[in-house]
Structures are given as structure tokens and as C-alpha cells.
């Protein structure tokens, strides 16, 4: 039986997983942090609706998100067809598809972590900075962001760990192509399903180490001084 272990090395699967995790986090980081700031600092109509929408990927079955992404990004999908025809880019059944699926699934974590982090920055300090002549941009980059950075960094690591563990949406959008889209989660599933328990356990071990190290780093960040 052809399993992940025979098709590609555990190292390749691990590297692809890390790459998917990093790219997925990078893809949505700016938008998620900006949205987190907006939700923490601004009052606007429909704010609770936005907060609810943001959380949807967390509460929906991952497979449902995967189907939605497939319908959007597939060759016949609205965005997928345009990407294919205009730019010659195919997303589904590539590792980019895995990264996009992971980005969507981990987006709420970073938004919520950023919102909490920005919300904890005393407005008084922003007011002082403003009274000292700082523009809004400088207030954000010199005061708000540095004071929120631990929480935001924590959110980034959480999003990364969520991304590398993504399964349901990823398998639909990226498939499970050894060497191309097989991440650790998909590799564990296919190895176990194929009766290759040893490989499955090895991949689980790698997953545990990755998750442990990431969480350790995130917790360390939270414990650090400002």
C-alpha cells in the first residue's frame, strides 16, 4: 500500500506543513490585526455582526468552510475561474490552496487575540501621546502596537499552530497529494487509514513537537516584560 512514508519523507511533510503554516499566517496577518484594532478601538454600526462573521470559521464545520472555498476558488468558482483565466493561477489542489484554507480557519484566532491585546492598551497612554504631538500613525506604531505586541504575537503563534493542524477544509481545497499538498494532519490521516501506524505515529510525534514548541514560544511571549 502506498502511504506517505513511502511517497515522501517525513522531513518533506514537516517542511511543507511549516511552510503552509507560515504562509497562511502571513496571508491574513495584516487584515486580522487591522480588524482586531478596529474592533477594539472603534464603535460602529454592525460591529457585533462583523464580530460574529469573523468567528464563523471557528464554529462552522471545517468541511463546510472547505466546500465554500472550493466553490469560490475551484476552476468553475467565481474567483478561481478569474484567477485561472486572467493570471493562469490555479489554487485548488496546490499547497497554496492548503495555505488559504489554513488562513481562513485561523483568521478568527488572530482577530480575537489582536482585539483583546489592543483593548488592553490604556487609552490614556494614547491620549498622552497625542497631546505630545504624535500623529495617529505615530501613536499607533510608537505606543499602541508596542504595548499590544505580546498579545498580537501570541495570536500569530496561535494562528500558525491552528494552520499547521488544519485538516477538514484543507483536504477539500488542496486534496491530499503526497509531496505537494500532504501536510502533517493529512499525512497522519492517510498513513493511519492505509495501515501504516509507524508513519502515523512518527508524524504525530512531529506534530506534538511543533505544537509544543510553538505554544511554548507563545506562552514565553506572554510572560515576557512589555
Amino acid at each position: 500500500m502506498m502511504t506517505v512514508a513511502t511517497a515522501v519523507s517525513i522531513g518533506d511533510v514537516t517542511w511543507l506543513t511549516v511552510r503552509v503554516g507560515l504562509v497562511s499566517t502571513a496571508l491574513m496577518a495584516l487584515l486580522a490585526i487591522a480588524l482586531g484594532y478596529l474592533l477594539a478601538r472603534r464603535s460602529f454600526r454592525g460591529k457585533s455582526l462583523v464580530q460574529t462573521l469573523v468567528m464563523l470559521p471557528m464554529v462552522l464545520p471545517p468541511v463546510a468552510v472547505g466546500v465554500a472555498l472550493l466553490l469560490l476558488l475551484g476552476q468553475n468558482g467565481v474567483l478561481g475561474a478569474w484567477l485561472n483565466e486572467s493570471l493562469g493561477v490555479r489554487v485548488v489542489f496546490t499547497w497554496w490552496g492548503a495555505a488559504i484554507a489554513a488562513a481562513i480557519m485561523s483568521f478568527p484566532l488572530l482577530v480575537r487575540a489582536s482585539e483583546a491585546a489592543f483593548g488592553e492598551v490604556p487609552r490614556r497612554l494614547e491620549h498622552v501621546a497625542s497631546s505630545l504631538g504624535a500623529s495617529r500613525l505615530r501613536v499607533f506604531f510608537a505606543v499602541t502596537l508596542p504595548l499590544a505586541k505580546r498579545g498580537v504575537a501570541y495570536g500569530l503563534v496561535l494562528a500558525f499552530t491552528r494552520g499547521i493542524g488544519e485538516f477538514g477544509a484543507t483536504i477539500l481545497v488542496a486534496g491530499n497529494i503526497p509531496g505537494e499538498t500532504t501536510t502533517l494532519a493529512l499525512g497522519i490521516y492517510s498513513s493511519f487509514d492505509g495501515g501504516d501506524d509507524a508513519t502515523a505515529l512518527s508524524l504525530i510525534g512531529v506534530s506534538v513537537v511543533l505544537a509544543f514548541v510553538s505554544t511554548w514560544i507563545a506562552e514565553g511571549w506572554l510572560r515576557r516584560r512589555t
Binding site: 490604556p122 490614556r124 497612554l125 491620549h127 498622552v128 501621546a129 497625542s130 497631546s131 505630545l132 504631538g133 504624535a134 500623529s135 505606543v143 508596542p146 504595548l147 512589555t226
Partner: peptide, 20 residues
């Protein structure tokens, strides 16, 4: 006039220093 353009120097009672 926006706060940043009033050319004021405000020292609040609790100081509000930037902790970072």
C-alpha cells in the same frame, strides 16, 4: 484644533508614562 496640534504639554496626575 486636534490634540496633537494644540502644542500642549500634559502631565496627568497618574503620570501615564509609556511602560515600554
Amino acid at each position: 484644533v486636534p490634540s496633537s496640534r494644540r502644542r500642549v504639554g500634559w502631565a496627568p496626575q497618574e503620570a501615564s508614562l509609556f511602560p515600554h
